[in-house]
């Protein structure tokens, strides 16, 4: 890694238009299940929708597997906290669905109204991963909390998040349980096609936000100077304080450490590379509180 270079760009009407070049974002889907991380995902989605002038859609999935489970004659559940056993029946599950859906819709309405963005709310019943994938096909970005209950472990990535990391055709915004900072905005840029898409999205975000930004230039194989020139060319009109950090290796752990060192509020990275599917990236999501935008 090399030291930082600070540059303050002065926006002009001509250059401001260039920030908005590239694909537009019309709709952001947020998966709601009333968990803390899903509410954070909602807040981040609303903020991003405001920035990108997009619509926000809330999705509540009535888990088909839970419906099936409740219908089994011996269904019982063991509580998380004290290990107590309680029975599970279909009526209780239906009531729970209705309650959670109402809560999710109310939260969506509050967040969208606060951000002054249009919203809609959808309830679907089905298997979680399939339903989310199906509904997400109409959206440009999917926002969801990345911590979930998986095998009883709070500190594991949720099953939805894991599925979306593993292979998904839309951009994904992942939020942790914890509160995240508002800055800096971090872009991991290696000059690839996916990185270009991430750069374009960053440009759109910076067109209406003034936030300190850091670009990690992955200079393997493209020289850092070339990468920097491309980024500067794209973000020259952004009214932001830009700082560059060079990483000479594509090693997953090295990249994760570079991101940790920056302590970003939002990290924008291409979802195409191997890195976002690596254990190093998953661990990074778990131990460092930041919002990750995986761009496709």
């Amino acid at each position: 890694m090399v030291g930082a270079v600070v540059k303050m760009a002065i926006p002009t009407p001509e250059s401001s238009r260039s920030l908005l070049d590239g694909p537009e974002v019309h709709r952001i889907l947020v998966a709601l299940d009333s968990s803390r991380s899903s509410l954070r995902a909602l807040g981040a989605a609303a903020e991003m929708a405001r920035t990108l002038q997009a619509e926000i859609e809330g999705l509540f999935i009535e888990d088909e597997e839970l419906v099936r489970l409740a219908a089994l004659p011996f269904s019982r559940q063991v509580g998380f906290t004290c290990g107590g056993e309680t029975s599970v029946d279909s009526d209780a599950v239906e009531r729970q669905f209705r309650l959670l859906a109402r809560q999710a819709q109310a939260a969506l309405a509050r967040a969208a109204d606060a951000a002054s963005v249009p919203w809609r709310f959808t309830v679907r019943r089905g298997l979680v991963r399939e339903t989310l994938t199906r509904v997400a096909s109409d959206s440009d970005i999917v926002s969801l909390g990345h911590h979930g209950w998986s095998g009883g472990l709070r500190r594991h990535l949720g099953s939805s998040a894991r599925g979306l990391l593993a292979g998904f055709h839309r951009s994904v915004l992942l939020l942790p349980d914890e509160q995240v900072a508002t800055s800096p905005l971090l872009l991991v840029y290696d000059g690839s096609q996916g990185a270009e898409q991430a750069l374009q999205l960053v440009a759109r975000l910076l067109a209406s936000r003034q936030v300190d930004s850091v670009v990690i230039l992955v200079s393997d194989p493209t020289p850092a100077a070339d990468l920097k020139a491309r980024v500067e060319g794209r973000l020259s009109s952004a009214q932001t304080r830009l700082r560059y950090v060079e990483v000479k290796s594509r090693d997953h752990q090295v990249l994760a450490d570079a991101v940790r060192a920056v302590r970003p509020g939002l990290c924008v990275v291409s979802a195409e590379g191997d890195w976002v599917r690596s254990d190093a990236f998953r661990q990074l999501l778990l131990d460092t509180p930041f919002a990750a935008l995986l761009v496709r």
């Binding site: 299940d33 009333s34 597997e65 839970l66 099936r68 489970l69 219908a71 089994l72 004659p73 269904s75 019982r76 559940q77 063991v78 509580g79 998380f80 309680t86 599970v88 729970q96 959670l100 298997l127 209950w149 998986s150 095998g151 009883g152």
Partner: peptide, 25 residues
């Protein structure tokens, strides 16, 4: 399958890697 619910865990028999449907059971 050990299946997470909003407030705890439940166990359900699997069929084709999914929770078995009641009619199947």
């Amino acid at each position: 399958a050990m299946f997470p619910t909003p407030t705890g865990f439940s166990f359900a028999p699997l069929a084709d890697d999914e929770v078995m449907k009641p009619e199947q059971f």
